[in-house]
Design a protein around this nucleic acid. Structure first.
Lengths: 117, 117
DNA sequence: CGAATATTTAACCATCTGGTTAACTAATAG
DNA sequence: CTATTAGTTAACCAGATGGTTAAATATTCG
């Protein structure tokens, strides 16, 4: 059966913010330090730092310290579980256009006609 | 290029809550009315009603009214885009074990100059 | 040493979230 | 008409989120 893990909670929550998705995209192109990752984002360094911590707690990145520089490394493993979850609905979005057509045709269909409840 | 649509924001945010993922799972097994969907969840009807509105605004379900009964129907189309986004990171979680091994081996790699702390 | 750099922590703020209970609207049943 | 049922709306609350600025902590540079 489907599990409602807090891992999945944290993964999806982390992905819900566009800044964090952008950071992940940058990391996918190579490991970066905080200042580097912060530059393209119109916000303060502490704000980016917070986003990085969210991603880190979600397990989506690993941090290594070289002196005062924190080097971030993408870790996409949690995305695997997320992808699996979403994929369970594959057949539903595949058939969605058919379903919409069907839906529109049945415009006047009754609920559970006759004896409700 | 990657887009940071608010569609994706809403989709991932909707999926970040376990109650909502559970509701989607129930909907995947057939359309249900609000009271029906609420029953297995240890919370009030208004709470479930709010979750349904979140899912609706994320485009993950459609609502039809038959008299006083609101019938919910899963619409998984938004999940398609989410799946595509996540899939872009497929190669990263595939290679993650190798990467971790590599990471652990390089444990003593120098920072940028030949100076370790 | 003292100055500069990289980053975090602290304190604060507005808004969002997920829940509650109570009251309301609307439809059906008797 | 009245009572019941389905569901939403309103008001409220605690805690999370996403941002800010200012101060603190390391680390490296000269």
């Amino acid at each position: 059966m489907v599990k409602y893990s807090s891992t999945l909670n944290r993964t999806f929550a982390a992905l819900a913010d566009p800044t964090r998705r952008r950071i992940l995209a940058h990391l996918a192109r190579g490991d970066k330090c905080v200042t580097h990752l912060a530059k393209p984002h119109a916000m303060s360094l502490p704000a980016v730092s917070k986003h990085l911590r969210v991603l880190e707690k979600a397990g989506l990145l690993r941090r290594r310290r070289y002196g005062r520089v924190h080097e971030m490394r993408l870790d996409a493993k949690p995305l695997r579980q997320a992808a699996q979850w979403v994929e369970e609905y594959h057949k539903f979005w595949q058939g969605s256009l058919d379903r919409l057509a069907e839906y529109l045709e049945k415009e006047n269909r009754p609920p559970e006609k006759g004896k409700t409840k």
